[in-house]
């Protein structure tokens, strides 16, 4: 895999809190990087990737703050990063805010669209809540009668035990 896609995956892991494996499991990583290139252009995409690469290393206490300051809080990159989060979570590219277009110029491909039928199906939103996209990846007859299986994710510092009662596989087998 190219460095560019690796950096893109690194950024996406940080923004979504889904692992590299989970992101690759959608089969959509390259298409999403391509979507960024197509909609906001290669230059802005590269700026975003460079900003990510320039963050202090993981484990450094200032990394989270830097991410907010240089990416999420950047006039140019913030809205793009947010659209990328929404893309991963829903498979839909949401049109950039009006203010962004006013400032950085309208992009011809920037409209709200579903990247592909499978992008809808692979939206991470569903996985995050232990559900499935309406109309796809059905969980099977009767599964709805059991508590949801919300996958565990790397615990944050503040809410370490948020989902411990809803771990994988509880309920069905036992």
């Amino acid at each position: 895999m190219s460095d560019r896609i690796e950096t893109f995956l690194g950024l996406s892991v940080e923004l979504t809190a889904f692992s590299r494996f989970d992101l690759l499991a959608t089969g959509l990583a390259e298409r999403y990087l391509g979507t960024l290139d197509k909609v906001v252009g290669g230059d802005t995409t590269n700026t975003l990737l460079a900003a990510f690469a320039a963050l202090p290393p993981p484990g450094d206490g200032t990394r989270a703050r830097a991410l907010r300051a240089t990416i999420l809080g950047s006039e140019l990159l913030g809205d793009v990063a947010r659209s990328l989060i929404k893309l991963w979570y829903s498979g839909t590219w949401f049109e950039l805010p009006y203010a962004w277009t006013q400032r950085f110029g309208a992009k011809p491909a920037d409209a709200t669209f579903v990247v592909s039928p499978d992008a809808y199906v692979e939206g991470l939103l569903w996985k995050a809540i232990g559900a499935h996209p309406a109309g796809a990846k059905a969980p099977g007859y009767g599964s709805w009668a059991y508590p949801p299986k919300i996958p565990a994710f790397p615990a944050s510092d503040t809410k370490a035990d948020a989902v411990s009662v809803h771990l994988q596989n509880v309920g069905i087998m036992s």
Binding site: F21, D22, L24, A25, T26, G27, G140, M173
Partner: peptide
Amino acid sequence: VPVMFEFRNMMLELIRN
């Protein structure tokens, strides 16, 4: 039954990585 459906998701994930 739900377990079989769960496989499908697990398999898809392996196969796409």
